[in-house]
Design a protein around this nucleic acid. Structure first.
Lengths: 341, 341
DNA sequence: ATGAAAGCGCTAACAG
DNA sequence: CTGTTAGCGCTTTCAT
C-alpha cells in the first residue's frame, strides 16, 4: 500500500538548481521563461515522472475548471447523446466534467448536488429526477453565484436558464398525427404531471384534441412511472376500458414498447386496432414490431447548447441571466405503429 | 461572476474567539472536543454557510477518498447495474466515485485514465474499451502502486486483479443449447477476438461444437463491431451463405436484435429456420419478437464484488495481489428465439 | 529572465 | 480539552 513519494516542483527545482517559481512558470509554458531553461525543466519533469498537483493548484487559484453534470439516469440514448454533446464542448474549452446520476431519486439528486458543490465545480448542468419538486438543493449554488443550467427536465417557473424542447408542441404533433390517422378516442400514458416535460406534453395532447373537436376524456389519462411494470399496467388499464381507445400517445419509448407487447399478447392489432406514438426516439423503437412512431429529441445538440452557454457565461462572454429559456427543435418520426392510411 | 468570499475555519474561529485547531477538530466530530464548544462551532458553521475545502484537505492528507470508474460505454443495462453495485459499496464505505466513459475509444480511455490519475483517485475500477490492446495507459497507476481492478472487459494475461464471468462456459452453454434444439450448422456473430470476452466466448462455441462432433466451419464466423450497422451486415452475410445456418450465437443482445429484424425482413422464420441466442440480457431482449434467448450477467453483483475488493485492499484488510481472478456466475435464459422443441 | 516569499485552507504533531 | 505551528504543492506579486 505504501505509495512512492510524489515528485513536486521542488524536486525539479532542486535537481536543476533553479527556483520553484521558474519551474512553475515553465510548466505552464509562460513565455517569460527562456526556451533553454524551459526545455531543461520539461525534460527533468519527464524524467522524474512529475505530475502536477491539482489540489495545490486549485487551492491556490480558487477554481477547478470543472463542470458538474447531474442527470436522472444513464441508460438512455437521449442522455448519452446529451453527454456526448456536453463532452465535446467542454473538452474543447478545456474543462473537465464530473458526471453524477440520481437514478430518478430526488434524495440522491440532492446528495449529488451537495457533493458537486463541495467538489467546487465552476458550474452545473442538471436534468431533474422524476420526483424532484423544488430547487431547494441547488440553493447553495445560487447563493454562491455558481451558474446552473437545467435541460430537459426542468422546474418551470424557476429563474434559472433552461434548455428544453417545445414539449407542448411535440405533444400536439403526436396527438394530431393520431387524429390524422383517423383516431378519435386517444388515450394518453404519461408520468407525473408535476414534471414539466409531462405536463407540457399533456397540454399539447389536450390542445390537439380541442382543436379537432374531440372532447378530453379523463378516463383515458393514465399516469405512472417509467418502469416496465408501468408499461404492463398501462396496457391492462387500456384493455379494461369499456370501449377500447383507437390511439395511444405514450410519453416514453420504453414504456410504449412494453405496453405494445402486452397489448399484442391480448390480440390487439397495432396499428389497426390501436395506433401508438411514443416519445424519445430510443434505439428500441426501430427493433420492435411494428416499429414505433415517436418524437425525436436532438440530444447531442441539446448537450452542446447547454455546455456552450454555461462556458460562455463562465468566461464572461455572455450572461446567463439574459437568456432564460432556450428551445431546441424536435421532430415527429412516423413509423408503422401509427400508420393506418 | 464575482463569487462571495468563502467561509473558512478561520472565520468561524475568529467569530467564536477560539483556535482553528478546535474548529477543525469539532468539524470532523473529534471526541476530544467538548460537546458545548462543538455545538457552538456547528451552529456558527451553519449560520455562516461554511463548506469545507476539499482541496486544502486533500492537499494536506494526501488522499482523496475517491475511486475512479472507467467504463467503455454508459447506455447498457449491464453497465448501469455494475455502476449501481459499485455505488452501493463505495457509498457505504464513504468513498466518492468519479465515472468516466471512453465511448469504446482507447484514445479516450487513455485520456480518461490520465485525468483520473491527475485527480489522484485512491483506486481505479475499469472495463476496457473495444479496441484497447494493452495496458500502457495504466502504467502510471501501477508505478505509483495505485490499485486497479478490471472487470468484464479485461486484458487476459495481465498481472492485475480481474472480475469476470466464465465467458468460455457461457459461450459453451449458449452453443450447446442451440445444439440441443437440433441445430447443426451454427453461425457465430461476435466482435474483435483480441478482447477477452469475445475470444473466450468463441472458445466456448468451438468447444461445444467439438464435443458434439460438429466440425468448426470458419465461414460461419462473423466478426464486426457492436453497431446497428454490424447487426444488419451480419444478417446480410448470413443470408448470402450458400447453405443457411440453422442457429446463430450472437455475443451482444443489441446486435442480435438488429440482426433478427433484418433476417425477418427477408422472410426467415425465427426460431424455425434459424434459432438465435444473444448475450447480456438487455431490456431489449424481452421486447422484440420472438423474445431473445440470452446469457444473463449479474451486473450489480459484479459491481459490488469489484468495489468491495478494491476497498478492502485500500483499507489494508486484504491484499489484491493475492486474488488474481474472480469469477462471477452467469446463466442461460431461454426464451422463444431459440426454442424449437 | 529568474528568485524570494507570502498565502490558498486544512490537518496533525506537540505543548500546554 | 484547547492552542500554536509547521507544512501539503502551487501560483503570483514584487524584487532583482
Amino acid at each position: 500500500m505504501q505509495k512512492e513519494k510524489d515528485i513536486t516542483i521542488y524536486d525539479i527545482a532542486e535537481k536543476l538548481n533553479i527556483s520553484i517559481a521558474t519551474v512553475s512558470r515553465a510548466l505552464k509554458d509562460d513565455p517569460v521563461v527562456s526556451k533553454k531553461t524551459k526545455k531543461k525543466i520539461f525534460d527533468m519533469a519527464e524524467e522524474l515522472g512529475y505530475r502536477s498537483n491539482h489540489f495545490a493548484r486549485n487551492l491556490r487559484i480558487q477554481q477547478t475548471n470543472t463542470i458538474g453534470v447531474l442527470v436522472h439516469e444513464l441508460n438512455s440514448n437521449f442522455i448519452t447523446s446529451v453527454l456526448a454533446g456536453i463532452e465535446k464542448v467542454t473538452t474543447e474549452a478545456g474543462y473537465d466534467i464530473i458526471i453524477a446520476h440520481s437514478n430518478e431519486s430526488s434524495l440522491k439528486e440532492a446528495a449529488n448536488a451537495k457533493n458537486l458543490f463541495h467538489k467546487r465545480v465552476d458550474g452545473l448542468i442538471a436534468s431533474l429526477s422524476f420526483d424532484t419538486s423544488n430547487l431547494e438543493h441547488f440553493k447553495a449554488f445560487f447563493d454562491k453565484n455558481i451558474p446552473v443550467i437545467f435541460f430537459d427536465r426542468v422546474e418551470q417557473d424557476s429563474e434559472s436558464t433552461v434548455v428544453v424542447i417545445d414539449n407542448a408542441k411535440a405533444g400536439y404533433q403526436a396527438t394530431q398525427h393520431l387524429i390524422e390517422q383517423g383516431c378519435t378516442r386517444i388515450a394518453h400514458v404519461t408520468s407525473s404531471l408535476k414534471r414539466n416535460v409531462y405536463s407540457q406534453r399533456f397540454k399539447g395532447y389536450k390542445d390537439a384534441l380541442y382543436d379537432h373537436n374531440i372532447p378530453f376524456d379523463e378516463s383515458l389519462l393514465i399516469i405512472n412511472d417509467l418502469s416496465e411494470e408501468a408499461g404492463i399496467e398501462a396496457a391492462r388499464q387500456i384493455l379494461k376500458m369499456k370501449r377500447l381507445p383507437d390511439g395511444v400517445f405514450i410519453t416514453n419509448d420504453f414504456v410504449a414498447a412494453v405496453c405494445m407487447r402486452t397489448l399484442k399478447e391480448h390480440e390487439v392489432n397495432i396499428p389497426e386496432d390501436i395506433a401508438i406514438v411514443g416519445f424519445n426516439n430510443d434505439a428500441i423503437g426501430k427493433l420492435i414490431e411494428p416499429a414505433l412512431t415517436t418524437i425525436d429529441y436532438p440530444g447531442q445538440d441539446m448537450g452542446e447548447i447547454v455546455a456552450t452557454n454555461l462556458i460562455n457565461h463562465l468566461k464572461g462572454v455572455s450572461n446567463l441571466r439574459q437568456t432564460n429559456t432556450i428551445i431546441v427543435r424536435s421532430d415527429l418520426i412516423v413509423r408503422k405503429s401509427s400508420v393506418r392510411k
